[in-house]
């Protein structure tokens, strides 16, 4: 079964649908025309470029180019995580990159090589979208973990110092904030798995069904991707937080002021 293409005139009709929320928001006195216009335009241009690039990537199907694409996604994710977590890129870029690269490569390789087993393990049709989906979710988790950990630590500076004075090692003194940050980071994924299919039909499954897959195949892929998202988010957040501690504290186990990005 082929997916029905959406011809240009019908795409125009789709863009016209945006006028409805725009008018409603305007009626409420929310003048967001500029923001909405820019967002819709950016989305269209970015996706069109990705579309062209993916078509080229899929036609080429070269393992080096596929790897390069994933590397680029990892680099963009690295900077995005640190900016959104309010941390200075120059102190944490390497540690965050190591954590997400390891967990994404591990879970995508596990899924593609051991579970899906396509004819070529480097097949762009599998590794590019799967790695992208896992990374997208992993990114959210890492932002939450880093932001939560360092903001709670700064808020509880006296408590942390008290623990050090009572004989705790740095590792022992941060343990409570560490657990809290990891829990906050993986909770959305756990909650998402628990309600999957009840609250909403997941995007990947919907896409596959629209693309002509059997519902059972789509269900199995959805389960596979959720387990990989859960695994990679947990792995990446733990590794990322652990590695970040070495850059974040001075030799006296005091949180370095300069690692926090005050502008964010």
């Amino acid at each position: 079964m082929e997916t029905l293409d959406i011809e240009m005139p019908r795409m125009a009709l789709l863009y016209a649908l945006c006028l409805l929320p725009w008018l409603l928001l305007r009626a409420l006195g929310l003048l967001l025309s500029r923001d909405i216009g820019i967002s819709v335009l950016r989305m269209s241009v970015q996706l069109a470029l990705v579309g062209f690039y993916l078509k080229w990537l899929f036609d080429l199907n070269n393992p080096w180019f596929n790897g390069l694409w994933i590397l680029m996604m990892l680099l963009v994710a690295d900077f995005s995580i640190l900016r959104r977590a309010g941390l200075k890129v120059r102190y944490f870029a390497l540690t965050t990159f190591t954590a997400i690269a390891f967990s994404i490569v591990f879970s995508t390789a596990f899924l593609v090589v051991l579970v899906i087993q396509p004819a070529h393990y480097y097949d762009a049709r599998y590794i590019v979208p799967l790695a992208g989906m896992i990374l997208g979710n992993c990114l959210q988790g890492n932002v939450i973990a880093l932001e939560r950990f360092y903001s709670v630590l700064r808020k509880n500076e006296n408590e942390y110092a008290t623990f050090l004075m009572l004989g705790a090692t740095r590792q022992e003194a941060v343990q409570m904030y560490f657990r809290d940050a990891i829990k906050a980071a993986i909770n959305p994924t756990i909650a998402g798995m628990a309600t999957m299919g009840l609250v909403s039909l997941p995007g990947m499954m919907t896409g596959q069904i629209l693309g002509g897959s059997e519902p059972w195949v789509a269900v199995k892929y959805q389960i596979a991707i959720m387990i990989c998202i859960f695994t990679s988010t947990t792995l990446a957040t733990i590794i990322n937080l652990k590695l970040s501690l070495n850059s974040a504290f001075n030799a006296f186990d005091v949180l370095r002021d300069e690692v926090i990005d005050k502008q964010s």
Binding site: F163, L166, G167, A168, T169, E172
Partner: peptide, 9 residues
């Protein structure tokens, strides 16, 4: 008893 949870004590 908090300090006595830490390895050192």
């Amino acid at each position: 008893l908090l300090p006595f949870q830490f390895k050192s004590h």
